[in-house]
């Protein structure tokens, strides 16, 4: 950490070795493209190196890096939408009340399907919540802090994302079974 503050090259190299792969996989799950993910992670490390002085608590280095990476991914996936002007947060709150809570297990419906492929099919906002929760191991409050949203929104996105993911995994399973039967005949 001190090495980074001193702009030491070896410290930056060690930082990339330690967090590079996790950030790369997180970025790939968010932006759905390997090259874009690489660029996002590169810019994450460059920004972290230049702004290391802004990190107050060294023990929060990983979540600080993750926050920069998430912002880099958001910048790269940003498209104009009416929802920016008319936020539909209230719709998400309604969804939260109707669907299972964020802590409900996903694993029940999941067998051998490719989880990453199903994840990439989700809308960005649901994918972001699901990736940060499952892959990066953040809790609802941490995701809310990382994405500058409120906790209810995060809970709603997790619930909605999980519901969509279950549906996709079930479809994958059905397709696999149908394919399997066809092969047997």
């Amino acid at each position: 950490m001190q090495g980074l503050r001193d702009k030491d090259e070896a410290a930056l190299r060690a930082l990339m070795e330690r967090y590079g792969n996790v950030l790369m996989r997180t970025a790939y799950l968010l932006v759905k493209d390997k090259q874009t993910a690489e660029e996002a992670v590169m810019d994450t490390f460059i920004q972290a190196y230049r702004k290391i002085g802004q990190l107050q608590h060294p023990d929060r280095l990983e979540s600080w890096l993750l926050r920069i990476a998430v912002n880099q991914c958001r910048m790269r996936t940003r498209t104009w939408s009416w929802s920016r002007i008319l936020p539909l947060a209230h719709v998400e709150r309604m969804v939260e009340e109707e669907e299972p809570g964020p802590e409900e297990l996903l694993i029940g419906t999941w067998r051998n399907e490719k989880l990453s492929e199903a994840l990439l099919e989700l809308d960005y906002k649901y994918r972001e919540a699901i990736v940060l929760f499952y892959y990066n191991g953040l809790n609802v409050a941490e995701i809310a802090a990382q994405t500058s949203s409120n906790e209810n929104t995060v809970k709603a996105r997790l619930a909605r994302g999980r519901a969509q993911l279950k549906l996709m995994l079930e479809r994958q399973e059905e397709a696999n079974e149908t394919g399997g039967r066809a092969t047997v005949h």
């Binding site: 990339m16 590079g20 690489e38 460059i46 190196y49």
Partner: peptide, 15 residues
């Protein structure tokens, strides 16, 4: 298989 392999480019830009 996804690994971050562009650390040399980062160092090229920072140093």
């Amino acid at each position: 298989d996804l690994r971050f392999l562009r650390s040399a480019e980062v160092l090229d830009r920072t140093h």
